[in-house]
């Protein structure tokens, strides 16, 4: 689904060069739920931006669902984002002036879908996140958890190949966070690949695999279960 090989990304100013990603390689298979963790400033967000085609990279190769990203035009990258990727942001990023229905409709409109199909997909996505009855409420009329569920509905309405979630529970209390994570797991069980970027090890534990980024490089690259087993064994002893 996602194959990054030797990706590097450098941010330059007149005085400073910051190597946000260096020789970064990661593969994610279809249907996986991968958590990318790391301390603040480690390169998680840069990874998310590059993986989500929100930013370009300097060197390396990136295949997304078999498509070589290098050399794609801005419009082609937009089309790929729209068709293959669903985004879930920490701050929900709902459009405050649009009601819930229209918020979920935003990416579908950019795909030039017929109105009837859009309506059916929006109803279905809102049904999955349990907010169909709130379709004509404004984001400001919903709680944080509900807003994030709307964002998830927006992300899945276009039936993307994979979801990129950026600290999706960062602005939620623990109960809401649990509900959102339950929802993500449910979506993953339906076959959608999920890459979760977080600094919260508790959340990362719920993923099938945990990848840690430090200084723009992957420092640990093992399934979470394999990481946790020795510690658990030690604790039980």
């Amino acid at each position: 689904m996602l194959a990054m090989r030797h990706i590097s990304k450098v941010f330059r100013t007149d005085l400073i060069e910051t190597h946000a990603l260096r020789d970064f390689s990661l593969g994610v298979d279809a249907g996986e739920f991968v958590a990318v963790t790391g301390p603040s400033g480690s390169g998680k967000t840069t990874f998310l931006n590059v993986a989500g085609l929100l930013e370009t990279f300097d060197t390396g190769a990136y295949l997304l669902d078999g498509v070589d990203i290098s050399g794609l035009s801005d419009d082609e990258r937009s089309r790929l984002r729209n068709e293959k990727i669903g985004f879930i942001f920490q701050s929900f990023n709902l459009i405050p002036d649009l009601d819930i229905f229209d918020n979920v409709d935003v990416p579908l409109r950019y795909r030039r879908m017929p109105a009837a199909e859009r309506r059916q997909r929006i109803d279905s996505a809102l049904d999955i996140v349990g907010l169909k009855s709130r379709a004509h409420h404004l984001p400001s009329q919903l709680s944080g958890g509900q807003q994030q569920r709307v964002a998830i509905a927006r992300a899945i309405a276009g039936d993307p190949k994979f979801l990129l979630a950026d600290e999706p529970t960062g602005n939620l209390d623990s109960l809401m966070a649990r509900q959102v994570m339950d929802l993500l797991e449910q979506i993953n069980e339906m076959g959608t690949t999920i890459v979760l970027v977080t600094h919260d090890p508790e959340l990362a534990r719920r993923a099938q695999r945990n990848v840690q980024v430090v200084d723009g490089q992957i420092s640990d690259y093992r399934p979470f279960a394999a990481q946790a087993a020795p510690a658990m064994a030690g604790a039980l002893a």
């Binding site: 989500g52 801005d74 419009d75 937009s78 089309r79 984002r81 990023n93 935003v106 795909r111």
Partner: peptide
């Protein structure tokens, strides 16, 4: 956000 979810320039 609009650009992220697929809007072209």
């Amino acid at each position: 956000t609009r650009r992220a979810v697929g809007a072209r320039r």
